[in-house]
């Protein structure tokens, strides 16, 4: 059961930041994971009054506020165009519309959950997180950092990440994924993120020859599968994850190729 002493909506980020420095306090995301916990919190900090619910077009980048819902991302035409539809592919299997209306970008990315679909995609897209105190941190670094008492205010995504494909394997349509795979092939090279291993997603640079062929894609899939560490949970064992990792990487790469 959850117990809060008080609920506050700070009016400035500084105020929110100051509040979150206390160990007994907590920043509220979508509430979806928090409400299942059995804990006592002194002050819950709701960022809903800070205007963090906007998706901004910065020209070369999208700047997504921490309070933007996953459903907003899923249905955003600009993000769909930037990611060749991968944004919706990545989000549409998360529980249901009502859930995605509540789940926030900030909660998903700050949480760095092992099962996270958006974490996987955002890693491949070379996202940058904006922390109120620490400033800009590449997601690839942030993902492995300890849970600092800072406030994630925005996530920035490049507007032209290249060709993108997102694939996930699930045991049922809206379950946690057994494995997630995002591939982006851009001018700066090809990147692949593998998540739900079931550990949190990791980024792998792909060393690809000029053109993606079934053979080069398969070889890349094999390399990723050998390179990445997998574990076991209720949904599948490590061997199975490794086996399908090859397949998803290859298919995602070929998916990128098809878009050429």
């Amino acid at each position: 059961m959850l117990t809060f002493r008080q609920y506050l909506r700070p009016q400035t980020l500084d105020e929110a930041y100051a509040l979150c420095q206390k160990r007994a306090n907590l920043v509220l995301g979508g509430m979806l994971w928090l409400k299942m916990q059995n804990r006592t919190v002194d002050t819950v900090i709701d960022l809903c009054d800070l205007g963090l619910d906007q998706v901004e077009d910065l020209g070369e980048e999208w700047r997504i506020g921490a309070m933007v819902s996953l459903r907003t991302l899923e249905t955003h035409p600009g993000l769909a165009a930037s990611t060749h539809g991968a944004m919706a592919d990545c989000l549409c299997h998360i529980v249901g519309v009502q859930f995605r209306n509540l789940a926030t970008v900030g909660g998903s990315i700050y949480g760095r959950f092992g099962f996270s679909d958006p974490l996987t995609l955002f890693l491949a897209l070379e996202a940058v997180v904006e922390l109120h105190h620490a400033g800009d941190v590449p997601l690839a670094d942030f993902v492995n950092q300890p849970y600092e008492r800072d406030i994630l205010t925005h996530v920035r995504l490049p507007k032209h990440p290249g060709r993108v494909a997102y694939l996930a394997q699930r045991n049922t349509a809206t379950d946690f994924p057994v494995l997630t795979c995002a591939v982006a092939v851009g001018e700066s090279g090809a990147r692949c993120a593998i998540g739900a291993r079931p550990m949190k997603a990791c980024l792998v640079k792909l060393d690809l020859p000029e053109s993606i062929t079934p053979e080069t894609a398969a070889a890349a899939g094999d390399r990723v599968a050998e390179q990445v560490t997998f574990g076991s949970n209720l949904r599948a064992g490590a061997d199975y994850r490794r086996a399908i990792c090859r397949v998803l990487v290859r298919r995602a790469l070929l998916g990128c190729k098809e878009e050429e």
Partner: peptide, 27 residues
Amino acid sequence: CETANCGLCTVLMDGVPVLSCSVLAAR
């Protein structure tokens, strides 16, 4: 359920369907 999986508690907040089991009344 207690895990935001069933959808039985769906209500509209500002016209948007949400799970009322996962929204603080305060929010």
